[in-house]
Amino acid sequence: MSKYETIRFEQSGGIARITLNRPEAANGINHVLGHELAEIAGLIADDPAVKVVILTGEGKFFSAGGDLKAMAANESKAGAYVKGLADDLHRALSSFARMDALLIIGVNGVAAGAGFSLAVTGDLVVAADTASFTMAYTRAGLSPDGGASYYLPRLIGLRRTQELMLTNRSLSAAEALDWGLLHRVVPAAELATAVDELAAQFAAGPKLSNANVKKLLLVSSDHTLEEQLAREAAFISHCADSADGQEGIAAFLGKRTPKFA
């Protein structure tokens, strides 16, 4: 069970669950939450027992992004304070992106600013039909962080990214799904169940295969075709030599359900 101040953290059966837990502050990211999220992400990334990570929020907000009240309270050193917040958040994002475990994000409500940035970094993103998404940075005289300038152009293209970042347009969950920011939208009352079912599915799956999918996609736009083909060949060979690979092949040929480690 959680030992943290602003996050609930639980781990069981290969599944780790992180819940942003500052509902009284719209799950805004202050220095404590940012530090705790970075710490948890690093621990999970180093834990071979974890196959799936669930990230969601408590209350009506997924996250309203950086805590502007905390920024205002540090007005005399706002730049340094915000840099610290961004650095912690970015450490967490890097750990999530490069860990072998899959990250499933359940967007339970409003995702704004860094909350929006964080929401779309999942390997699978499921949103409640009541969720909404807005960048909101320039409205507060700020510029994006949380990987938004990396992920959004790749997910939805430059023009739509420009519109979101410069106009602060708000998207409903249905619109975000249509734009390609999400994988699935479900009724709000069914979000936890939908996320848990996905997590259980992947917890029973082959960790190395899923990790290799993440790694291949993360670098695909940076490689030439031949470089990516070489990476694919090395990865599939590694999978074939693994216990899960041998079990998967045997199960497929034997027309039975595989039992992965």
Rank of each mutant, 00 (worst) to 15 (best):
T121D: 01
A176Y: 03
L103S: 01
V82C: 04
S209V: 06
A16S: 11
S12M: 10
Y4M: 07
L177M: 09
A140Y: 14
L191G: 04
L198A: 05
K207D: 04
L253W: 08
M165Q: 07
L142N: 11
A188S: 15
R139I: 14
L37Q: 03
G84L: 06
A136D: 13
A16D: 05
L33E: 04
G42E: 11
E5T: 15
A112Y: 06
V213C: 07
L55M: 12
A199T: 02
H223P: 00
M1E: 15
E5M: 11
L191N: 07
H183W: 07
D129R: 08
V186W: 06
A173C: 05
S170G: 02
A131H: 03
T193W: 06
R98M: 06
S220P: 00
G245V: 03
P48Y: 08
K255A: 14
T19A: 10
R160S: 09
N74L: 03
D241N: 12
G147H: 09
F235W: 11
T130Q: 12
L103C: 00
P23E: 07
S76N: 11
F116N: 00
Y150S: 08
E197T: 09
K215A: 14
A92Y: 02
A261K: 13
V126F: 07
E39I: 05
S170A: 12
D67G: 02
A119T: 04
R231F: 14
W179T: 07
I105E: 00
T56Q: 05
L225S: 08
A127R: 04
F260T: 01
S143V: 13
E163W: 02
V195N: 01
F96V: 08
Y151V: 09
L158H: 09
L124M: 15
L198N: 01
L191I: 07
G65Y: 08
I15C: 04
E226D: 15
L158N: 06
S149Y: 05
G65M: 06
G14P: 00
A174G: 08
R184H: 11
M1G: 15
K259W: 02
V125K: 02
E226V: 07
T224Q: 10
S94Q: 12
S95T: 01
A127S: 13
P144C: 08
T130R: 10
V53S: 04
A72M: 12
I249Q: 09
A188D: 12
